[in-house]
Structure formats: C-alpha cells, structure tokens
Computed example of a mutant assay.
Amino acid sequence: MPANEGLGSLADAVSTLDRRSRFELLREVHLDFPTYHPQGMAFAKGLTFLSSVEILDPPEARRGPGLAQPRAGERPRVCPRGRR
C-alpha cells in the first residue's frame, strides 16, 4: 500500500477545521518539566516531540522590524509518561 493512500479523506477532514471546531479531550499527559511557551507538537513511534520557546527577558514595548524579544528555542523529546 502506498504511504499516502487514504490521506485524501484525512486531508479533506482536516481542511474543514476552524477556530469554532469542537474537540474532545481523550487524555492528558502531565509533563515533569517546564514547557515555557509551546509552539508545536509531533508524534512518532510512541514519542512526543514538543517545540517550545523560553522568553529570556521581560517584554518591553518595541517598534520596528528585527526588534523581537530574545528567546531560547527548545525541542525536548517526551516519553508517554511525560518525561524527557
């Protein structure tokens, strides 16, 4: 079976989601480390990969391009029990 077989119906279903879509929480995994500001998540082979950003300096009013807050990026790998 080709790897992308059956993805058309999944892609069609995902394309109908918007901010008003309702989701049902099936379970929670409590993490035993600070997650800071999560940006994204991916799942592969029983592991969860979390993309997160820690803001290093308190926010200030800044104007103009290129004046973003200093941040440290992090991509921890998380086991199903919520540990690194």
Rank of each mutant, 00 (worst) to 15 (best):
Y36F: 11
G40E: 06
L25E: 15
G40C: 09
L31Q: 04
C79F: 06
G8Q: 12
S9V: 08
H37S: 10
A44P: 00
T16V: 03
R81Q: 13
F43H: 10
S9P: 03
R22H: 09
L7G: 00
P38N: 07
D18R: 01
S51C: 05
R63H: 11
S51N: 03
R75A: 14
T35S: 06
L17A: 03
E60Y: 06
P70E: 05
E60R: 15
L10E: 06
A68H: 07
L67E: 11
S51A: 14
L26Y: 05
V53F: 08
L31A: 07
A3E: 13
G6V: 01
P34R: 08
V29I: 15
E74H: 13
R62M: 08
F43Y: 13
V14E: 03
H30D: 12
D12H: 06
L26N: 10
R22Y: 04
G64Q: 05
V29E: 09
L17S: 02
L10P: 05
V29A: 08
G66L: 02
L50F: 00
R83H: 14
L31G: 00
E24G: 07
P58F: 04
L67V: 06
R22W: 06
A68R: 12
K45Y: 09
R63Q: 13
E28Y: 09
G64V: 02
D57Q: 14
D32T: 08
G8D: 15
E24V: 11
R84N: 07
G82N: 03
M1N: 11
R81K: 12
L56N: 01
D57H: 14
L7H: 08
R22S: 11
P34F: 04
E28P: 01
E60G: 10
L56I: 14
P65H: 10
A42Y: 07
E28Q: 13
G6A: 02
D32C: 03
M1L: 10
R62K: 14
G66T: 03
G6I: 05
G73L: 15
L67I: 00
G66A: 01
R19W: 01
L67S: 12
G82H: 02
F33M: 13
S52G: 03
G46D: 10
P76E: 10
A61Q: 11
D18Q: 01
H30Y: 04
L50I: 05
R20G: 10
E28T: 13
D57I: 09
R81D: 15
E28M: 09
V53I: 11
L7A: 05
E24A: 13
P34H: 07
G40Q: 01
V78G: 03
M41H: 08
A42K: 08
Q39A: 10
R63D: 07
H37P: 00
P70F: 02
E24S: 12
R20D: 12
L56F: 06
R20T: 15
Q69Y: 06
R63S: 10
E24R: 15
H30P: 06
L25H: 10
L50P: 04
R84K: 15
A11N: 12
R63F: 13
K45P: 00
Q69F: 08
T16P: 00
A11K: 09
R75N: 13
T48A: 11
A11C: 04
R84L: 12
L56A: 06
S21M: 02
P70V: 02
D18M: 00
P59A: 02
D12R: 07
G40R: 04
